[in-house]
Write a protein that binds this DNA or RNA. Structure first.
Lengths: 239, 239
DNA sequence: GTTGACAACTTGTCTAAACAAGTTTATATT
DNA sequence: AATATAAACTTGTTTAGACAAGTTGTCAAC
């Protein structure tokens, strides 16, 4: 790991551990140089990332102020697997694969809004229900491109897809584009989530790509309306 | 404007103008140095921001690849005013103030989830309906802290609050935290958005702060379910 | 007491340089 | 033809330094 990432992690943990509580200032950039034995630019890189992720607000002439922070909010935040989220939040979660098709075709229409130009791409299709605290809250439909990942064993779907991609296959996940909309619940939604006809669900569609920019995973998540929540932190664009 | 921001804007416009189309590589970092007369680190700062905002994917050993990009998607994205969005997207939009209370009290309970500890704070309360293409799609309820901004004239609400804050008062908007949930439509929602009882709405609550980290604006937006859409770009956290 | 100037802090921007590491291409060797 | 090597590109990380600009406290002058 690089120095700036080490400094980032250390500061982040000290913020979350309230060694640097909300409302206080981090050590100044010059102090960070002495504390960690780094150059100022290296420290600034760590601070810039803390600011980007909503941990601090940098104020010129004053310092780096620790601000209120919300991350790892359930169930939609950044690119984090359910396994990681459950571990972080100490949530009791279960994962039921109710459909597994190793040779399917990508339903293109669902993802054209996210900039895909794929047609009739062969995929592994997986449908799962996420059970949280003994309640079925989310349906996940995953389509994984066979041109990038030829085989996705059912066992990987039952455990964690990301763990399989990253740790078993050594792939590097780069970025994802997400779209959140609302839609009337289908019969499938009602069946698996215990909803009444006429209800709505929150639909999260995402396309995930590797660090070499190859899109490989298309996901549609359908959420119970009363359990859905999404948090976002945004900075005002510079002028 | 700083050099890196100038380079960022120039490259961004050339990407959006398809001078650098999706699938091609930007000039290398050393070429950018010659093209703009800058040092490599300055160019890298611009590239890092393009990557952060989903314009490019940097690939070591190869270059900066232009990728599919979606920004300024209607109606919820980053911190952008409706006036800015409408101008950018050439959308016909109207803005009806149906409630204006210059001396109200912040409904604290709605925003505690976003980390507020305010109680009984005096605010200017504004309720507006956003009419897009002759259809009422969104209700916006804004509460602006009087301790930060004593007066918000009704005319500012009828035009653009952000324009008033930034250009009239000279305030610098820094960041915002947003929360998206779903909720049953209230009688007020049904009346202004033309919904039937039993319908759901998408609720976006946000707290916006200045660059000095003072929270000053609390907003609750309630959206017609069939028109609501939110786009997000996220990168996988480094290890 | 009030004001103003200054010094000492803070962050913001930019530069030039060095080395590491991944990719591609050309070249020499087998 | 196939392979290995090397060179020339690319981005990634870190350093040391300079100057600009905003904030705060001190101290002298009024």
């Amino acid at each position: 790991m690089n120095k700036s990432a080490l400094v980032y992690d250390d500061l982040m943990q000290k913020i979350e551990g309230e060694i640097y509580p909300v409302g206080t200032y981090l050590p100044s950039e010059n102090q960070l140089c002495d504390l960690y034995g780094i150059s100022r630019e290296t420290g600034r890189k760590a601070l810039a990332e803390l600011a980007e992720n909503g941990y601090i607000q940098k104020i010129r002439g004053k310092g780096s102020l620790v601000i209120e922070h919300h991350q790892y909010e359930f169930p939609v935040s950044g690119i984090v697997s359910y396994k990681e989220l459950a571990a972080k939040l100490h949530i009791k979660t279960e994962n039921i694969v109710y459909s597994y098709e190793p040779n399917a075709i990508l339903p293109v229409a669902d993802f054209t809004a996210l900039g895909t130009e794929l047609t009739e791409a062969p995929v592994t299709a997986i449908k799962r229900v996420r059970v949280i605290n003994d309640e079925p809250d989310i349906i996940d439909k995953d389509y994984i491109l066979k041109t990038v990942i030829p085989d996705v064993p059912r066992s990987a779907a039952e455990d964690s897809l990301y763990d399989y991609f990253e740790n078993q296959l050594g792939l590097e996940i780069g970025y994802a584009t997400k779209e959140i909309t609302m839609a009337p619940a289908t019969a499938e939604d009602c069946e698996h989530l215990g909803l009444k006809p006429g209800a709505y669900v929150a639909v999260v569609r995402s396309v995930t790509s590797l660090t070499d920019a190859r899109a490989f995973q298309f996901t549609e998540s359908r959420h119970r309306p009363d359990k859905f929540s999404f948090r976002d932190f945004a900075r005002r664009a510079h002028k």
